[in-house]
């Protein structure tokens, strides 16, 4: 085994990890808020709201994330809207995964049995109360596993911010590779392993959360 200069690797990768986690957390929040908003609009009783939200979801889902990211970062300034790198990344990733998430929210809401909504109406709940106290808590349990998968996809997606020269994990690893060309396989394996640990962290958290939320329910 060659002696691998791990001590030179870690400081740079640590800096990269911080950027990756920052962008991942911010865009995960953006994606979740967006998917809830678009998802709720898609089950609205007004037809126009439903159609507009569906078009939004289709557009941001049909665009490749990288193209969306380039568009937000390079093309939007021509319309007078200029974001810094982190904001561009969060906007693009949030929109893309939010559009996917809206589908999860919509199908989870539709999957709650109709009787629940009817019972709430019979008990004189207002539409808002019905959604907050009856429908959403039951839908949340259904949303959890697909949302966990979506968050893993999102973490993987953050590697694309390397293209707009944000110094995330992937970016730092490529710099390391330039400095230690003969260490290429170790650098990439370590990089893959870090991403694997990040994703596993999400999937374990989701599993724990699922168990906690499912307690006391059928």
């Amino acid at each position: 085994m060659m002696d691998v200069p791990w001590n030179d690797f870690f400081p740079l990768l640590w800096e990269g990890l911080k950027v990756t986690v920052e962008v991942a957390v911010l865009s995960a929040l953006a994606a979740m808020v967006l998917s809830l908003v678009i998802g709720l609009c898609r089950v609205s009783k007004f037809k126009t709201v439903r159609i507009i939200s569906q078009i939004c979801a289709e557009v941001f889902r049909g665009l490749p994330l990288l193209v969306l990211l380039f568009w937000v970062y390079f093309a939007l300034p021509f319309l007078g809207i200029e974001f810094d790198k982190v904001t561009s990344a969060v906007v693009a990733i949030g929109l893309n995964y939010g559009a996917f998430g809206s589908e999860i929210v919509r199908s989870a809401i539709l999957a709650v049995p109709n009787g629940q909504s009817e019972a709430a109406r019979a008990l004189n709940f207002s539409p808002l109360q019905r959604m907050i106290y009856i429908i959403l808590p039951q839908a949340a349990l259904r949303m959890l596993p697909p949302f966990g998968n979506l968050m893993i996809e999102l973490i993987k997606g953050t590697s694309l911010i390397y293209f707009i020269t944000l110094s995330d994990l992937t970016y730092q690893a490529l710099i390391l590779r330039n400095n230690f060309l003969n260490m290429t396989p170790y650098i990439f394996l370590l990089l893959l392993l870090i991403y694997f640990v990040l994703s596993s962290f999400v999937s374990v958290t989701v599993r724990l959360l699922e168990r906690k939320l499912a307690a006391g329910r059928l």
């Binding site: 893993i152 953050t158 992937t170 690893a173 490529l174 396989p185 990439f188 394996l189 991403y195 694997f196």
Partner: peptide, 18 residues
Amino acid sequence: EFIRSTPLLVQLFFLYFY
């Protein structure tokens, strides 16, 4: 599990460069 939970971009670099 490993391939699914790591980014395609990094896998592409690894494949292409090494």
